[in-house]
Structure formats: C-alpha cells, structure tokens
C-alpha cells in the first residue's frame, strides 16, 4: 500500500527547539528510506507565507494568498512511502526526525476508480 505521511509543525518553532532536527538528519533519514525500498517521494516545503491557494469555478480561476486554512501547526513537508500495512507506515512515520517536534499524519492513498467511459475519453484525448 501507499501512504502519505504529512509532517505538520509550528513553523516558527520547528528549527529552534532543543529536539529540532537539522537538514542533514532529515536528508540521512530520507536516504535510509530509499535504501530500504520504501521511499516513493519526499520533500520539505517552504513556509506557508509562500503558499498560494488556487480555485477553479465555472472555468474561472481565483487565487488567494496564503494556505488553504490557517492552523496552529503548518504543513512542513511530506513523505510518500510504500508499506505493507499501517504498522509499517507508522514505524516509518515515527522515525521522521520532525516527528519529535511536530506531528505526522499518516494517510493511505486511494486508487482512483477506473470506469470504462472515462478511460475511453482519455484514450481519445491522447
């Protein structure tokens, strides 16, 4: 199964706590996941003030400055991993260095339904 591990933390404190991880530690953890074959993708994110929220309604695109929702803890990065089950995914999440100062939400991904008409349309497009 694929799981997305969303790393949340208070941005202002993320780097200043006694337990705060250094980039080198995060890098090393990502590499160890690669080596174990569990890593699909991982990135750290710029602070939320760099965020732009996009909506498309009736073909019209609107933009807002900032994140989708103002929260006490912000999305700081993510890992997309491959794991056999939730226990394995939890083990990976618990090892993420930022879990010491923030929280990691573990979510299984969902297979999109592949109903025939939509597939046909897609084939026609390509």
């Amino acid at each position: 199964m694929k799981y997305l591990c969303l790393v949340y933390s208070n941005e202002n404190a993320l780097h200043d706590l006694p337990d705060s991880p250094h980039d080198s530690e995060c890098q090393a953890y990502a590499e160890s996941l690669h080596a174990s074959g569990r890593m699909l993708a991982a990135e750290a994110l710029q602070p939320v003030q760099s965020a732009t929220t996009v909506r498309s309604r009736n073909g019209k695109v609107s933009l807002t400055d900032g994140p989708f929702a103002e929260t006490k803890e912000q999305l700081a990065g993510f890992y997309l991993i491959e794991a056999n089950d939730l226990d394995e995914a939890i083990e990976v999440a618990a090892g993420i260095p930022a879990a010491r100062v923030g929280s990691v939400e573990v979510r299984p991904t969902r297979e999109l339904a592949t109903d025939a008409p939509f597939q046909a349309a897609r084939t026609a497009d390509s």
Partner: peptide, 14 residues
C-alpha cells in the same frame, strides 16, 4: 480495511 491495519501479532519489541 482502508488504512491497512494489519491482521498480525505486533513485532516482539512492540
């Protein structure tokens, strides 16, 4: 089912 909670005994250390 959806989160993949396994049907197995926890590892000895857990």
């Amino acid at each position: 089912r959806d989160a993949g909670i396994p049907y197995h005994l926890p590892e000895p250390d857990a």
